[in-house]
Write a protein that binds this DNA or RNA. Structure first.
Lengths: 95, 95
DNA sequence: TCGATATTTCGATAAACATCAAAATAACGA
DNA sequence: TCGTTATTTTGATGTTTATCGAAATATCGA
C-alpha cells in the first residue's frame, strides 16, 4: 500500500467528503462537483490524489466518468494503524 | 478529534517512525533524534505536529523532555476510518 | 463532421510544509 | 552565578499543495 499517499489523501476534508459521497454509490465527476464550491478543475485534482492512493476507481460511461469507492484498501489502512498504535511489551521499553 | 491534524501527522514517514519508536516506551527528544538524519530543530517541528494532533504527550524530566504515545486517540481514528469506508446500503445510491 | 457536453490538463499564484543553521530558553551542577 | 547540556524557537529557503481560469481531450447526437 502507498501509506503516505493514502493518509495524505484522507487528511483533506474535501477528499473525505468525496469518499463519504461515494459511500452512497458510484457518482459521476459532475454529480460529485455539485456538492462542492470549488471549480471542476480543482476537484479533478482531488480525484487524481484519491486515485493515486487507490482509494477510488473510475470508469468512463459515455461522456461521463464515474467514480466509485475502492473498499479493499480499508484493510491495509487498518493494519497500518493497528501497527502504529499497538504498544509493544517486553523488550527495550524504558519508561 | 482533530481529524485533519491526525491524518496529516500520520502521513509523514518521519513522524510514523517516531510513533513506532515510542511503542517501545517513552523516549527523550535526544534519544529519538539518534534514529534520524535530520537536525534536532527539524525533529522538534515534527514533535509539535504530533502534539497538535494529540498523538503524543510530553513531560519535562530535568534537562530532558520525554515523549510518549497517546494511545487514546486510536479509537477516534479507527472510528473515522470505519465511517469513511463503510458502504451505505438502502438510500439514494445509484450505480 | 460539427457543436454541445463532460472532464481533465496546463500554467500561474498563494499558502503550507520540511528543512537547516543559528539564536533563545530551560535546567543542571560546580 | 557560570558554563554545559538538552531542547525549542526563529528566520530563511526550496518544495509541495490547493486553487483558479483557460485550453485541451473525449464522447455523443444530429
Amino acid at each position: 500500500m502507498r501509506t503516505q499517499e493514502v493518509f495524505k489523501a484522507i487528511s483533506d476534508p474535501t477528499r473525505r467528503k468525496v469518499l463519504k459521497l461515494l459511500q452512497g454509490g458510484s457518482r459521476s465527476a459532475g454529480e460529485l462537483a455539485e456538492a462542492f464550491d470549488i471549480t471542476k478543475g480543482s476537484l479533478s485534482h482531488h480525484f487524481n490524489v484519491l486515485k493515486a492512493a487507490d482509494l477510488v476507481r473510475c470508469e468512463r460511461r459515455g461522456q461521463q466518468i464515474v467514480y466509485s469507492l475502492n473498499t479493499t484498501v480499508f484493510e491495509d489502512v487498518a493494519a497500518v494503524l493497528l501497527d502504529l498504535f499497538k504498544v509493544d511489551k517486553g523488550n527495550g521499553g524504558r519508561s
